[in-house]
Design a protein around this nucleic acid. Structure first.
Ligand code: ZN
Ligand code: ZN
Ligand code: ZN
Ligand code: ZN
Lengths: 162, 162
DNA sequence: GGAGAAATGTTATCCTATTGCTTCTTTAAA
DNA sequence: TTTAAAGAAGCAATAGGATAACATTTCTCC
């Protein structure tokens, strides 16, 4: 798989996501510490989702001392605050596009390039909630991961093949 | 979490699932070897999904020599044949209720007791496929995991609390 | 029977995640 | 302003999940 691309930290989407996070944390009275903020920045600064150890490597490049718990605790915080999602099928973490609204996350994940697209289909969410209700099941969180190939990747194959 | 309950290997659902698997593999011209069959049996013989190492422990109790690759290879085969699913959020494996029809799997997973209920909501499946189509994304497989509490578990809490 | 393919055995290692405990920092009360 | 308590981060060790690489066995087909 291709290595995750680094994006300028000051990219519009990263800056916007960080400002949004600052605001949310202030509203909620929770602390977006330097470390937590930096981990969020690292996640948003890459085109593809990163694993915990990849994030740790970046932290070490920063010069910061670090062991796995350092990054996992920051990730736990960001997950609790709904600022990031964990993609269980890949053991990676990706920034949430709608951190205001609590949700489990719906993702299109490209098997070939690792790129991720977050959906927000409330109809799907409701249908699943209905299914759960019908069985007396109390829903805490939904996670939907659709694995496949993004346009770039399958078009590349098509061109080569035909 | 509660330990996974062992169920008699000859329980109706286990026996039925194994017969179904035998038939499918024969039709498909693939080999359901003794090991693969036994792993499938172990999975169906437990009330809750098992992790790979838990399955390995059972194999060892059988007296069979075994290392992780032993069980992972069998699991890979069963996954390829759609006879089991992997629940990525828990790193466990569970038997598929509809191995004829290829599908990623939709699950209600109880956070407290680990019990799993497989859904087969085609409307959800279609909606997600539509979302993917609209983005030019080629779907290979969908995985849906709804985490929450089963009736038994939240009713227990309700009784205790109120 | 013999060649090639498929499956399994075996060992070592990698990747992911957590536990337990210590130290530092922040917060708020005295 | 000191000080206690809580929260966050540092640190070392370890648990848990999965794979790589290679040897050996078993099966299939000629
Ligand atoms: Zn989101
Ligand atoms: Zn792609
Ligand atoms: Zn199924
Ligand atoms: Zn339960």
């Amino acid at each position: 798989m291709a290595a995750p691309l680094e994006i300028a930290s000051s990219s519009p989407r990263a800056r916007q996501a960080l400002e949004h996070a600052e605001r949310l944390c202030q509203e909620r009275g929770v602390r977006l510490t330097v470390l937590r903020r930096r981990v969020l920045e690292i996640i948003w600064s890459h085109a593809r989702p990163l694993g915990a150890y990849a994030i740790l490597d970046v932290l070490r490049d920063d010069g910061r001392a670090g062991a796995p718990p350092t990054v996992y605790r920051a990730l736990d915080f960001l997950l609790e605050q709904g600022l990031i999602h964990r993609l269980a099928s890949l053991n990676v973490f990706t920034g949430c596009c709608q951190p205001d609204r609590r949700h489990g996350g719906q993702f299109l994940i490209c098997r070939d390039c690792g790129q991720v697209d977050e959906l927000n289909n409330t109809q799907v969410e409701c249908l699943l909630n209905d299914e759960a209700d019908a069985r007396g099941f109390e829903v805490l969180t939904q996670m939907i991961e659709v694995l496949g190939r993004c346009p770039n990747c399958w078009q590349g194959v098509t061109h080569r093949a035909g």
